[in-house]
Design a protein around this nucleic acid. Structure first.
Lengths: 228, 228
DNA sequence: CTCCTTGGTGTACGGCGTACACCTATGTGT
DNA sequence: ACACATAGGTGTACGCCGTACACCAAGGAG
């Protein structure tokens, strides 16, 4: 009987379903219970394929990070460290835009899966093979911070996201004039407020290039660890 | 009668208790129920002083951010934008080190309280009063990102936190040689592994100065928005 | 055909945030 | 001094969550 026999579960099916669920309905929708019903299975069944929820999240990170290589512009490593690093980071950013939950998960994760380590290793390789000293490479990786995963905190951006009504904007503008001036919002003569929003991609590349410029300069000048 | 009469609750007492609880036992210990028992009160009592848990967290952020001013090195605004910005950010960092939960809370928060806006406004003022154009100031704030709050993602750091036993380090070193080389770990001739850890304060200032150098250069060169 | 392993089930526990109805101090106007 | 409105504290309950534990059903190996 039973061509309707349900496909057997396995780790990959669980992880893929979790990713799909997070993509579709947001990270908060990814609960063991919800994921189970999504898979037509009882919640505890998942625990046969995943130790606990943390491991599920780690697995989701791996799935997403596994997509980065396909986003790489090509075998660009020979074109110099800067293009290699830049290309890899922007590839990660494209993945992150497809999986908006990735940022929040990576932020809270503390365990490093082999996939995470592999990504980091590849990036570091970009610097070292260009002759960066190990200490400089170390500092530089710290300086890039979460930007290596293609995302920024952007705690600042949402200020101008919902075009504010003139009244409340007026209020904000008088209390915090500097924010208002810089927020990319223009108040026209007739009192209407126009928010141009801001181009996230531009901001990301601006900051990335600012860092890469600084890094290049340090490297070219033969940066040395401060004498103690 | 009753000198044992319990002090009446109010918003500030609730927020202070939440901060103290988070400082002592970690952010995860801050639940409405736990906080209530800490205050000798039933959970629902808190809702008379705080709309919901999100507002509690926002309030905690305000309490912490309110401590930044006291950390400022002095009326340094006249000493140039760079010292003003740097001083304010390092002050925020000192606060953040006292309240380790602040990072996680700020990361997830999306609402901006007046306190948050005031902090941001003061920082922006530092740039604008030095003649930074509004678009440049805007980009520069994005580039600083979460660093304006005195913290970094530091997804990379914990690799060398627990001094790894030689065996597992050997494993990591062969699989990810570049990480191993850069992690600040030295393998001695006798096979013992020494992790020097890394100086978070140094890393933070290194990256901050890298950014500020780049920012200063853009400003001095009269950076203009790219022609469209 | 048996048995052992692997995968799926059912029940239950303790925690969470919070809606809602209720009671009780407290401070005010008369 | 007293009635009363209101602000602050209580109790109960609901629906989520992650997951421990005991159980049962397939399915491959001897």
């Amino acid at each position: 009987m039973g061509e309707s026999r349900r496909e057997r579960l396995n780790r990959d099916r669980v992880l893929d379903a979790a990713v799909a669920l997070a993509d579709a309905d947001g990270l908060d929708s990814v609960s063991m219970r919800r994921l189970a019903t999504e898979l037509g299975v009882v919640p505890m069944a998942l625990y046969k394929h995943v130790a606990d929820k943390d491991e599920l999240l780690d697995g989701m990170v791996d799935v997403a990070l596994g997509e980065v290589d396909a986003e790489l512009p090509g075998p660009v490593d020979a074109a110099g460290w800067r293009l290699a690093v830049r290309g890899r980071i922007l590839a990660a950013r494209r993945v992150q835009l497809r999986h908006p939950w990735l940022r929040r998960v990576l932020e809270t994760r503390t365990t490093r899966t082999p996939m995470v380590l592999a990504y980091t290793d590849a990036l570091i390789a970009g610097f070292r093979s260009a002759g960066f000293s190990d200490p400089l490479t170390h500092h530089v990786m710290h300086a890039l911070g979460s930007r290596i995963w293609g995302f920024t905190q952007d705690l600042f951006e949402d200020v101008n996201q919902p075009p504010p009504d003139p009244a409340s904007f007026e209020l904000l503008a008088t209390a915090f004039p500097h924010i208002a001036a810089v927020a990319g919002v223009a108040v026209h003569d007739d009192g209407t407020v126009v928010a141009r929003g801001c181009d996230d991609q531009f901001e990301f590349e601006f900051a990335l290039d600012l860092l890469l410029d600084g890094i290049a300069r340090l490297h070219d000048q033969g940066w040395l660890p401060p004498a103690r």
